[in-house]
Measured scan of single mutants.
Amino acid sequence: MLYVKVKTEDGEELVLEVEGMTEDEIREELAKAGFKIEEIEVYEVEP
C-alpha cells in the first residue's frame, strides 16, 4: 500500500492512500480539490 502524508499551508495534516500515482499527479489532484500544499511525504506500507 502506498500512502502520502500531506501538510497544508493552514497546518492541516492528511494521510491519503494512493495507488499508481506519481507525486506530481498527487499534487495536481489535491490542487484541484482546493488544497494548498506545503509538504508531501510518500511512504509504502507492507501488508
Rank of each mutant, 00 (worst) to 15 (best):
E39D: 12
D24Q: 12
R27P: 00
R27F: 07
G11K: 02
Y43C: 08
E44R: 13
V6F: 13
G11H: 02
E13S: 09
E39S: 15
V18Y: 14
E44C: 14
V45C: 11
Y3N: 03
D10P: 01
V45F: 12
E38P: 03
V4M: 03
E17A: 13
A33W: 15
K36P: 03
E17K: 15
K7Q: 05
V45S: 09
D24T: 09
E9R: 12
D10A: 10
M21V: 06
V4W: 07
M1F: 12
E28W: 12
E9H: 09
L30Q: 00
E12G: 09
E41L: 13
G11P: 01
E13F: 14
K32N: 06
V15N: 05
L30I: 04
E17G: 07
M1L: 14
E23C: 14
M21F: 08
E44Y: 14
T8H: 03
E23L: 15
Y3A: 04
E17Y: 15
V15M: 10
L14T: 03
G20T: 04
V18A: 03
M21L: 09
V15Q: 04
Y43V: 06
L30Y: 04
M21G: 06
G20K: 06
I26M: 04
A31F: 11
E17I: 15
L2C: 08
L16K: 01
L14I: 12
V15G: 02
V45T: 09
E29D: 05
G34L: 02
E44S: 13
M21K: 10
V15S: 04
I37L: 09
E9G: 09
E39F: 13
E39N: 12
E46Y: 14
L30K: 00
P47Q: 08
E28Y: 13
D10L: 07
A31G: 07
L2E: 01
V42I: 14
E38W: 14
D24K: 11
V18E: 00
F35D: 00
E23I: 15
A33K: 13
L16W: 12
Y3H: 06
E19H: 14
E9I: 14
G34N: 02
L14Y: 13
E19M: 13
K32E: 03
V42E: 02
E12T: 12
E41T: 12
E38F: 14
M1N: 07
E13P: 03
A31L: 11
E41K: 09
K36A: 06
E41D: 06
L14H: 06
L16N: 00
T8S: 05
E29W: 15
G20F: 09
A33I: 10
A31N: 06
M21D: 02
E25H: 03
G11Y: 02
D10E: 08
G34P: 03
I37E: 05
E13G: 03
G34A: 02
E38A: 13
E25S: 05
V6M: 05
L14D: 01
V15R: 06
E38R: 15
E39V: 12
E38Q: 13
I37S: 07
E28H: 10
Y43G: 03
D10G: 08
I26F: 03
E46C: 13
G34Y: 03
K5Q: 03
E39M: 12
Y43I: 08
P47Y: 09
P47V: 08
E23A: 12
E13C: 15
G11C: 08
A33S: 07
M21P: 02
E41A: 08
T22F: 04
L30P: 00
V6E: 00
E38K: 14
E19I: 14
E19C: 15
E19G: 10
I37P: 09
Y43M: 08
L30S: 00
D10I: 05
L30H: 00
G34E: 01
L30E: 00
A31C: 10
I40N: 01
L2Y: 14
E13N: 05
V42N: 03
V4Y: 08
E46W: 14
A31W: 09
L30M: 06
M1S: 09
I26K: 00
K7T: 12
K5F: 09
